[in-house]
Design a protein around this nucleic acid. Structure first.
Lengths: 183, 183
DNA sequence: CTTTTCTGTGCGCAATAACATACAAAAATA
DNA sequence: TATTTTTGTATGTTATTGCGCACAGAAAAG
């Protein structure tokens, strides 16, 4: 979520421009953006507007995406200790493992529910789907009128733009993972 | 080339936000961008920075591309009379039929060469390819050291990051089309 | 009907994007 | 070497992004 694109754009832009053997002057002429601005963007000192970046992309004869694409590492290890969990007042603790990724369209949480706790979700944004994989304790999920009970190892999928409730009726904590997919 | 993204972004954003049934307030909270700004962007009154638009996209749980994608009409008719041709001093007239499109990666020109004219191209940006379709008169093309002669109906493809020369040796004009592709 | 909440828009201000110009270092030419 | 050209960076100015706040209409609650 807290994510700054400017260094990525800068790197991509500088790399692409050099690859095409263009000087700041030349690219400025091709794109209609001043070379001072292009230089600043390459150094990550400026946060360009979409129109400016669009013109640069066109001048470079490159897709807009090429400039903003993060080109993330093939492997990403997330340490539980490096994550700051979000604990709700109702006893649900949310551990965001992979937060929303722009190109992929989903995010993954690990969730812990205190004994005898209930969490009500009003319903997420339209067209979203929720995948729940239970792996410790018992979990009861109610979607609209229907109620489902999941034991460790069970899984469920439902359209989460409708109201749904998580309930842990047991004396032990319940742990599960959820994958939220947005269409 | 002269292209303003802001009305497109505005339309896309308003449509997506309503589809997900979010108010300006709610989306502001989700994205961390003030609702005043979001409103202005939707009305096309603001040209947001990439970081701002990125945050909005993430808040909306939507890909960045969804906001800037032009969703262009299935069919696009280009009238010759509506185009302003670019005539070079060396007798080459360029008619840009479909100028560079960000997602497609190519552009299409129609070209007319005056009798006994020569056009030298130093070599375009790295990795570009040129497709030439001759359809009136005679055309001679030199790529690096090799020279090719095209009659009406002939075609040629070559990597255009090397120097190349167009030559019309005849007493009549030569007409052809070129497709420029950028990798 | 009145009050409250929720919707989007207008206003003034601070931060900064984007520009034109000038500058210094390196490369190329002589 | 000196001279010119080409490279990228730094400076000062203007235009506008992005913010908080206040506002007016609509919907909901009382």
């Amino acid at each position: 979520m807290m994510y700054d694109l400017t260094p990525i754009i800068g790197e991509n832009l500088a790399k692409l421009r050099r690859k095409k053997r263009l000087s700041l002057d030349k690219l400025s002429e091709l794109s209609g953006i001043s070379k001072a601005m292009i230089g600043q963007i390459e150094r990550g000192e400026s946060n360009p507007t979409v129109n400016t970046l669009w013109k640069i992309a066109s001048g470079l004869r490159v897709s807009f995406g090429k400039l903003i694409d993060a080109n993330q590492p093939a492997t990403e290890l997330v340490r539980l200790n490096d994550i700051t969990p979000i604990t709700d007042t109702d006893g649900m603790t949310l551990v965001p493992l992979f937060s929303f990724d722009n190109d992929k369209g989903f995010e993954i949480f690990s969730i812990i529910m205190a004994p005898h706790s209930v969490h009500e979700a009003a319903g997420h944004v339209g067209g979203s789907e929720e995948y729940v994989l239970s792996f410790e304790g018992d979990l009861e999920i109610t979607v609209e009128t229907e109620t489902y009970t999941l034991a460790a190892g069970d899984a469920i999928r439902f359209k989460s733009d409708q109201a749904h409730t998580y309930r842990n009726n047991s004396d032990k904590i319940a742990k599960f993972q959820t994958i939220l997919y947005y269409s």
